[in-house]
Structures are given as structure tokens and as C-alpha cells.
Nucleic acid binder design. Structure first.
Lengths: 201, 201
DNA sequence: CGCTCAGGTTAACCGCTGTTCACATCCGGG
DNA sequence: CCCGGATGTGAACAGCGGTTAACCTGAGCG
């Protein structure tokens, strides 16, 4: 094994290296057909290379998926932390910021959204654990804000509400492209804010 | 081929025949690990039988999945039609009925929800087309009601809104069991109604 | 010039899993 | 009592797809 090519600490993301090309193409293919249904030959062909060439850049197909999912989660977590911090102390403003952020991400990356919650199950247990851990932290970011908005609600209710909001916003892959992007963004934002602030009844 | 066992027109669903046992067990396994990840041996073992025995009841693994998905869609479509008809002419009442129906289904069958939108892609194209056709009719049921509630909104917006509501309600598999069922039902219903009636902004 | 190393290629391997086959077994009816 | 159909079993088959091995090329460089 020549110096473990999967650690990926060596190269910045400035120009799209072969590695990055592969990751992007794979995300697209995985989203369309499901990770198990696309072969390494397919991924290779998508970047103009034969299948086994992939192993010069990733230790295995699973490692590729793992890195892909981990990056998504980390991107979401980092973005949400930044956006909440920039929103000051107002819980309502923080919520609006989180919603706007998630809507933008879901509209920009429907493929990643799809892969993220369809193919988590194909990861090895250690890899899956790592991804879930980051995801959990992202959810808790939302739960904290929702808890301040609904002081009387139990934490479990806030967590369920957060998941429901994710489901709402992450519906973008299902209603693809039928509506212009700005209209879609307004619609999802409006619905999410209404659902997030609805009383518990 | 002994008289095409997959047509399933011969037996009512009164007592859980072997066929029904298999379908139920398979739904559970498919939901947990994904349809491609479970083998026929797994399904067989789940009902106390070896793998190849499945072929006495289904023409293939794919046929099994196809029947499962088709049934889900048909159940939803039939239920929604009935519930809307029973709600009279008030669009708001129809919406509440649809939401209550979908919430109940999602809470009762999280496994089916999961399989439905994760494994549609593994079906053969003809089978997938059949399932999508029924799904489309279900969506249109919602769109019709939403269109009456938002007369000024374009149809595409109503369709996107319907998909967003499905995403919200179908989040049950992700927030499994943490909250008591009645509380969960109230929460989802309240959020969905708020999101469904939110103005377009 | 010749060495090294990154990145590719083709061919082969091999394990897994859907499917089939030939053979039991059980049971209801003539 | 024996026959036939439904149901199940274990063994074998076959194809697919991830992974590896052996070999090639071209660029940088002392």
C-alpha cells in the first residue's frame, strides 16, 4: 500500500484534482441509482478512466462513500455554526438563519441530500458511526434553537420537530426543477418557518 | 414455471398466508438494511424457511419488491380518496383529513415509508413506471386540495408544497420512538397544517 | 541519461447472491 | 391405499462486481 491514499491531507481543493472529480461524479451517480447499484467501472467512466484506476485515489469504494458522507455532514455542521453565530442572540433570527442555510444547501445539492439519507446504511459500522456523530451534532444545533423558541416543549419534541423540518426542506430532490429556484426558496422558507413556530396544540 | 405464482389473484388476505408473512418480513428487513443488501436467504430465515423456498411464492426477488411497493401506493391512494370524499366540500376540512390520514399511516408503517422512497430505484423500469403512476395520482389528490386553498398559486407550487408536506410527515422513521405516539401525532399534524396554509410570501 | 514515482491499463481472481434442479415430505381426496 | 399437488430442502450453477496483480508510460530531476 503506497502511503495510504485515502487520508486526503495532502492536497488543497483549489483546482479540481482527479480525486475531487471522482468524488463529484460518484455523488451524481450514487444519487441517481443508489450507491450499491453503481460499479467502480461506472464511476471511472464518468471521469474518463477505467474502473481500477479509482484505487490509485481511494482505498476502496466504501472509503469513497464514507469520505463523501462525512464531508457533507461536516459542511452542514460548520455552516450552521457560522450562521447561528452571525445571527446574534435572538432565537427567532437564529432559526431564520438556519432555515435559510438549509434551504440554500438543499437547492444547491439535491444529489448530496439524496445520497446522505439513502446510502448511510451501506457504510461499515465504524464509518457509519463517525458520520452519525457529526449529523447528531448538526441536529443538536437546531434543537438548541428550537428549545429556546418553545421553552415549554420537551427536548424530544424539539428533536422530532427538527427532523420534520429536515424532511420538509430536503424534499427538493422529489420536486426537482418544476418551479423556478427563487420561488422554490421562498416557498420552502415560508413553510419551514410556519412549521417551526407552530404551537404544539 | 408452475402457473405464475406472482399474480396473487387467488388468495384473500384473511389469514396471514406464507405469502403475506414473507411480504411483511421482507418489508421490515428491506427498511432496515436496504433492498439490495438483504438476500433471499435472509428473508427466508425471517419466516423460518430456507432461501429458495421463496420462489414457491414469488417469481423473483424483484417481483416481491414490486408487489410490495405497488401495494403501498395503492393503499395510500385508496385511503386518501375515501378520506377526502368523507370530508365533504370544505377544502380546509379535506386538507385536515389528508394530513391526519398520512400522519396515521406514517406512524403505523415507518418501515414501508422508508422502503417506498429508498428502493424505488432498484425496480425494473416497467415495474417502477407502474408504481410511479399510482404515486402520481396520490400526489394529485393533494395538489387538487391545495389548489383550492391557494387559488392564486400556480400548480407547480402546489405540487412542490405537497412534496414538502410528505417530507415533513414521512420523517417518522428518523425520529423513531423518542416521543409518545399521541404527542408525535399532534406535533406532526400541527406542523403540517401550519406549513400547508402558510401564505406564499 | 537513467531512476523514480504517480497514475493508468488489461486480465484475472474470487466471493457473493439470485436462481434453478432434483429430490423429499406432507396431506387431502378418490 | 395410493396419487398428485403444494411446499420445502440442499446442492449446484452462473453472472456480476469489487479488488488485486503485472505491466506500461510520461514527467520531473540529479
Amino acid at each position: 500500500m503506497p502511503s495510504t491514499p485515502d487520508t486526503a491531507l495532502h492536497d488543497n481543493a483549489a483546482r479540481p484534482s482527479r480525486r475531487e472529480q471522482i468524488l463529484r461524479a460518484a455523488a451524481q451517480l450514487f444519487a441517481e441509482r443508489g450507491a450499491r447499484a453503481v460499479g467502480v467501472d461506472d464511476v471511472g467512466a464518468a471521469v474518463g478512466v477505467t474502473g481500477p484506476a479509482i484505487y490509485r485515489h481511494f482505498a476502496s469504494k466504501d472509503a469513497m462513500l464514507a469520505e463523501m458522507l462525512l464531508r457533507i455532514s461536516e459542511r452542514l455542521l460548520a455552516g450552521s455554526a457560522e450562521v447561528v453565530a452571525a445571527a446574534g442572540d435572538d432565537a427567532a433570527a437564529q432559526l431564520r438563519a438556519l432555515i435559510a442555510f438549509q434551504v440554500e444547501f438543499a437547492l444547491d445539492n439535491p444529489a448530496l441530500i439524496t445520497v446522505q439519507d439513502r446510502d448511510l446504511g451501506v457504510l461499515s459500522e465504524p464509518d457509519a458511526r463517525r458520520v452519525r456523530q457529526v449529523q447528531r451534532r448538526y441536529v443538536e444545533e437546531w434543537v438548541a434553537v428550537l428549545a429556546r423558541l418553545h421553552p415549554e416543549a420537551p427536548t424530544a419534541a424539539c428533536r422530532a420537530r427538527a427532523h420534520a423540518l429536515f424532511g420538509l426542506i430536503n424534499s427538493t430532490p422529489h420536486s426537482a426543477g418544476r418551479l423556478a429556484r427563487p420561488a422554490m426558496a421562498r416557498l420552502l422558507t415560508g413553510m419551514a418557518e410556519a412549521a417551526a413556530t407552530a404551537p404544539i396544540c
